[in-house]
């Protein structure tokens, strides 16, 4: 399988002296659904900016489907579709014009551009809004417009920089379904997101970037196996005694009727329930405190 993206020793120092990337290596296989995670200012958007040639690199190399951005920039650009974090289309143009013009910038004939625009606007539920000025769209529609625009030249690599930021849950899930579908059709996808549940649900491989360095780069499953600890939240029928504790477990009473219990990998929940029963506590419901990936993410960043 060929490499959709290959980054070697990528470094970026901005004019103000800030070193955003400290020589990162990254490889994304063709057909992958890849998550690039990291806290704000970690270097995610700089990396994406360099891949799309919006940011000039200081050192290192970037190849997209074997085309170096140094020697074959136009060929590399043709392979990429980008959905940036912030809205970047004309407020005064219609949805239709924005998508059709973008196809024109990639050299697609007007006829083909219009065919593709119709296809993607229908798939993203924007067809009825095609004659609406983009500024009149809701936030979710604007996000979908940027996805349609990024797909209109049918790139083999789609990069989404926080595509579901500010999007409601229902729409987010429909966008996930759409992204899964185009990935299954063969488009390689790189996703940055703050919703770790999103990365866990969609992506097969993951890289975590922090302070301009790759803290982790592995398969999602492998990463999740590293999880040593999970926190459960228990709701109780009656108010908990002030002296509540469970031998061998870290507990935290967060409310009159709510108890958090931290469980090490391999630990048994039966022991927790037995200890609570002995103290006359009846548990009515239980849930994970946070997404598993979120816990791992926090611990990895703490380490790095």
């Amino acid at each position: 399988m060929s490499k959709a993206l290959e980054i070697r020793g990528l470094r970026k120092v901005y004019d103000n002296g800030f070193e955003a990337l400290k020589g990162i290596d990254l490889c994304v296989e063709e057909g992958d659904f890849f998550a690039l995670l990291g806290p704000n200012g970690a270097g995610k958007s700089t990396t994406i900016g360099i891949i799309c040639s919006l940011v000039k690199k200081t050192a290192g190399s970037v190849s997209v489907f074997g085309h170096s951005i140094d020697s074959e920039l136009a060929l590399a650009k043709k392979e990429i579709g980008i959905v940036p974090q912030e809205f970047n289309f004309s407020n005064f143009e219609s949805v239709w014009d924005i998508v059709v013009n973008q196809a024109g910038y990639y050299g697609l004939t007007r006829e083909l551009a219009e065919q593709r625009a119709e296809t993607y606007l229908r798939q993203l539920d924007l067809w009825e809004k095609r004659n609406t000025a983009s500024r009149m769209l809701s936030g979710g529609m604007k996000r979908r417009l940027m996805i349609a625009r990024a797909l209109v030249h049918e790139p083999r690599l789609l990069i989404l920089d926080e595509p579901t930021a500010g999007v409601d849950i229902e729409l987010r899930r429909s966008m996930w379904a759409f992204l899964k579908e185009i990935n299954q059709r063969g488009t390689t996808i790189i996703l940055t997101t703050h919703y770790l549940e999103e990365a866990e649900s969609l992506c097969r491989n993951i890289a975590i970037i922090d302070s301009g360095e790759i803290a982790e780069n592995t398969a999602m499953k492998t990463l999740l196996k590293q999880l040593h600890r999970e926190t459960f939240v228990l709701d109780t029928k009656e108010p908990l005694p002030d002296t509540i504790s469970i031998a061998g477990f870290e507990t935290h009473k967060t409310d009159e009727q709510m108890l958090e219990v931290a469980l090490e990998k391999g630990g048994s929940l039966n022991a927790v329930f037995a200890a609570l029963s002995e103290q006359g506590v009846e548990v009515t419901s239980m849930r994970n405190k946070a997404n598993r990936l979120e816990e791992l993410f926090v611990s990895l960043l703490a380490k790095s």
Binding site: C52, L54, N88, F89, S90, N91, Q102, Y105
Partner: peptide, 12 residues
């Protein structure tokens, strides 16, 4: 409005 990026990322 940053839509110059539409042009800058294209292969033109």
């Amino acid at each position: 409005q940053r839509f110059v990026e539409e042009i800058l990322v294209s292969p033109m």
